[in-house]
């Protein structure tokens, strides 16, 4: 099914080089507005490169890349004010205070300072921390400042690279809440992470990268399988296969083929769309022992089909 609106991020056979090395070797990806898409893959798979390309920091040398309606092959800087990126390293100046850092980020992006105090409060950076130099903060606190700058800027596209890194449990929950709020507010979020158990619960879509290409695309399907609390759920490998990860939000998602996990009562099981390159059209099903007959189905073959399903946000173009 053709998406109703043009994708916020649209890469078509995108190739990007770092030096002579192809960081992206023909990426096809489309991300719809308001969705949260997780990019996963091993080191060097191209996750960060996709984020940097979407921010216009990495030039796409062939193929096509459109972000927020702007052709980044024509002008890489066109989307900068509309995009917010949380990178590996905190993008902060050590000698500025917390409030000065966030204020600088907001003013630079031409944003409104009105909500600044509320953002600092929410990220637990008010009080004494507000006037503390960033250089004196812990890694986790610096991460929160970075995140506060992002939240205060209110970008249309969020690019988060390992957003949970350096954060304690409360900080991680805060990141999750902020990401959910951003998506609920209409922003689109791309998350690159190795910590799948942390980020998959946030995701509408999980895109797997390897060697600078998209090699897999999972799409959650919100169907209630009605299993008892704590029941182990196994999705048969080779069909829809995957580890079922129980999540507080009441949605279980499939991550990797062949492994088992707990499925809370009354939650949905996500079924990945098979590799779009190798799969054929058909239906995939997830089964959970002890549960009613499986009702989870998925149009396999291409992720275009998945994108039309509830909760799906990305598809391989």
């Amino acid at each position: 099914m053709v998406p109703a609106m043009p994708p916020v991020v649209h890469l078509r056979n995108a190739v990007a080089l770092t030096g002579r090395f192809p960081a992206l070797a023909g990426v096809d990806l489309a991300v719809e507005q308001g969705s949260v898409v997780v990019l996963e893959g091993s080191n060097g798979a191209g996750k960060t490169s996709v984020l940097r390309a979407c921010a216009g920091l990495l030039a796409v040398t062939s193929g096509a890349i459109e972000v927020l309606g702007c052709d980044l092959r024509v002008d890489r800087t066109a989307v900068r004010r509309r995009v917010g990126m949380l990178g590996h390293a905190a993008a902060l100046y050590d000698d500025l205070t917390v409030v000065e850092s966030v204020r600088f980020a907001v003013r630079a992006a031409g944003g409104d300072l009105a909500g600044l105090d509320a953002v600092l409060e929410r990220l637990e950076l008010s009080g004494r921390l507000r006037r503390t130099a960033v250089g004196r903060l812990s890694a986790g606190q610096r991460r929160r400042v970075d995140l506060a700058a992002l939240v205060a800027r209110r970008p249309e596209l969020w690019l988060l690279d390992e957003p949970h890194a350096s954060l304690d449990a409360a900080g991680r929950d805060l990141v999750d809440a902020v990401v959910r709020d951003a998506a609920a507010g209409g922003a689109t979020v791309l998350v690159a992470s190795h910590e799948l158990q942390a980020v998959v619960p946030l995701a509408d879509q999980v895109v797997t990268l390897a060697g600078g290409r998209v090699v897999g695309c999972c799409s959650p399907i919100g169907v209630d399988v009605g299993v008892p609390a704590g029941a182990a759920g196994v999705v048969p490998p080779g069909v829809a296969g995957g580890e079922v990860v129980g999540v507080p939000a009441g949605v279980a998602r499939v991550v990797q083929a062949g492994s088992a996990g707990e499925v809370p009562a009354g939650v949905a099981v996500a079924v990945p769309v098979p590799d779009p390159v190798t799969s054929t059209t058909g239906a995939a099903a997830a089964t959970v022992p002890g549960a009613p007959a499986p009702t989870v189905t998925c149009e396999a073959g291409t992720c275009d089909g998945a994108s039309a399903l509830p909760g799906a946000g990305a598809h391989v173009a």
């Binding site: 921010a55 390293a89 993008a91 100046y93 980020a105 630079a108």
Partner: peptide, 17 residues
């Protein structure tokens, strides 16, 4: 050097300034 710290160069580029 202010803009040479990890992430700082990207900060200015991404700031939209």
């Amino acid at each position: 050097a202010l803009e040479s710290a990890p992430g700082a160069r990207d900060t200015l580029r991404l700031s939209g300034l």
